[in-house]
Design a protein around this nucleic acid. Structure first.
Lengths: 211, 211
DNA sequence: TAAAACAAACCGACTAGTCGGTATTTGTGC
DNA sequence: GCACAAATACCGACTAGTCGGTTTGTTTTA
């Protein structure tokens, strides 16, 4: 792997994500960002039209990656259950890696000027739609229970996963892989029909042997 | 009910919650708040030491109410399953009424000065602990599956419920009561053991008759 | 009539963005 | 390879505007 010198732009983004996560967009000044990486205000505004544009960049990098990964998980499999499991896996993985990005994404998007926030909201909906499609298809094939409204199920899952950014600590007692297992188990039991449960159990946590 | 004249303090809080939800704490100036309710800056600072204190007030009113309601739900019942159902019910109801408060609570707490945020975080943990206690007790009585880590289950449920503030619209196609039903159904199926499922089914959605 | 509640003008610290300038890289003719 | 120009990347003092908070003055109430 060639040792490429990081551009100033990249250094600004990297530093900002961390600083924004810690103290919030409005509590981090441009001066502080450039001081943090040993750069200058001129350098900052050479790379970004405004502080807002930087915020947009962070949003876009993150949500674009989420969509890409979700879509790949969808394309890689061909049954609702496997697709759902793959997406849960992928999403929690992304959320593990990009925790700082997510925090900014879900707490600072209000500060995006309209021109930017429109684009971002469309992409955010796209992410939700991919998941919702899986649920809907699963209901059509009777793999998932049809008595549950597909939109609510989708948002319940999204909420469960997204909320991890608020409490998950990489230094905590459980790894994200272990958490994913639990989430997958819970989701499958919650929505898979009895007749399709056979396919699902192989993705679930095995019963602990009696102690 | 006596028609009490609202104090300026109350009017400030009420207006601020709405404005903060819409545009975020930092994007709403004190001038805008007082102009919105036809008051003055002097009146504001007569009632609050600082803008931060107002933010704290909003946080505290909300989380104190959540804790009170959760505890009441706990005390009112005496089995894990009924307690869990009651808490889901209560929480979603609160979230329905206090959507603006929640938005502020979960997105602006970073702006609280340390002295305040310490108090708030303790109360937030208290809310989580009440729910976690129900889960833990349910695992002890074998009503809930013991192979799932109690902390993760708790946070999964918290995430599912909390996230509603991001997407639920009172003008939407489903009421909060209907959403609660779906959530309850999903949660019970996810964590209740087979042997305890009999007690749980009465709280769940009935199968749609075949069409 | 005194104290509380509120109004209106004002202050000062802070910060996003600017602008004239300098360093560094890239392209070009020889 | 080399001079040299031209574009690109970057710097840092400065500014104009904003906004939380204060001060001083006025009204209401008990």
């Amino acid at each position: 792997m060639p040792m490429v010198k990081k551009t100033l732009k990249q250094r600004i983004v990297d530093a900002s994500v961390v600083l924004f996560q810690e103290d919030g967009y409005h509590n981090v000044t441009v001066d502080r960002i450039v001081e943090y990486i040993g750069a200058s205000k001129g350098g900052f505004y050479h790379n970004f039209k405004s502080k807002d544009e930087l915020l947009y960049e962070i949003h876009d990098v993150f949500i674009s990656y989420v969509i890409k990964q979700s879509q790949e998980a969808y394309d890689k499999y061909d049954t609702p259950i496997t697709r759902l499991c793959a997406m849960l896996q992928t999403l929690t993985q992304v959320f593990d890696m990009y925790q700082a990005h997510i925090t900014v994404f879900y707490e600072e998007s209000r500060s995006l000027p309209e021109e930017y926030s429109e684009i971002i909201h469309k992409k955010r909906d796209q992410y939700r739609d991919i998941l919702q499609k899986v649920i809907a298809e699963g209901q059509q094939t009777k793999d998932f229970r049809t008595e549950l409204p597909c939109t609510i199920v989708t948002m319940a899952i999204v909420g469960m996963i997204n909320w991890t950014y608020k409490w998950f600590k990489q230094s905590g007692p459980l790894t994200m892989e272990e958490i994913t297992e639990v989430f997958t188990d819970m989701v499958l039991r919650a929505i898979v029909t009895e007749q399709a449960m056979e396919e699902a159990v192989q993705f679930m946590i095995k019963e602990k042997p009696a102690e």
